[in-house]
Amino acid sequence: MRMELRLAGEGGQGLITAGIILAEAGAKYTDLNVVQTQSYGPESRGGASRADVIISSDEIDYPQVKNPDVLVVMAQEASDKYLQSVKNGGTVIVDTTYVKPVPEAESQRLKVIEFPISAKARELGREIAANIVALGLLVETTGIVPKDAAVAAVLDRVPKGTEELNKQAFAAGVEAAKAL
């Protein structure tokens, strides 16, 4: 088993944090191998932002993601840039708060999950938790790591005082995935 995942959006949406949390969930709470990479440079201070995670039962040699199995997009630019890179039959999770519906050509070859991720986080209290809503969706959809591993990894990382919010955010993502 080897799954390549990409989370892409704009700087400030917390997608690199979400990528690290997913990777930590895999590293600390499963027997799987994990690597995580991300975009660096001026783009991580606003503009495009990207986190890649590979989770595999085998040793991970080449550490970069070229054609992800799963893509999460939370900004239009990210969608435009990365949608085509997703493997045939792969999954794309779209934050419809900011991203237009996936074009017909792409939706035929991909499993498309559309949900207003950021709007949901706003409803829960703070849009900053949108990355964790996305993580909930991702984990429920892919089953790449156990849910309780993901929640534990979320709680390891998020600032003190935001634990409840983030737990709710994760649960909201899970619920959304179940409902779709």
Binding site: G26, V35, Q36, T37
Partner: peptide, 9 residues
Amino acid sequence: ETIGHLREK
């Protein structure tokens, strides 16, 4: 840079 920035289990 690849190894410097890579996060790995």
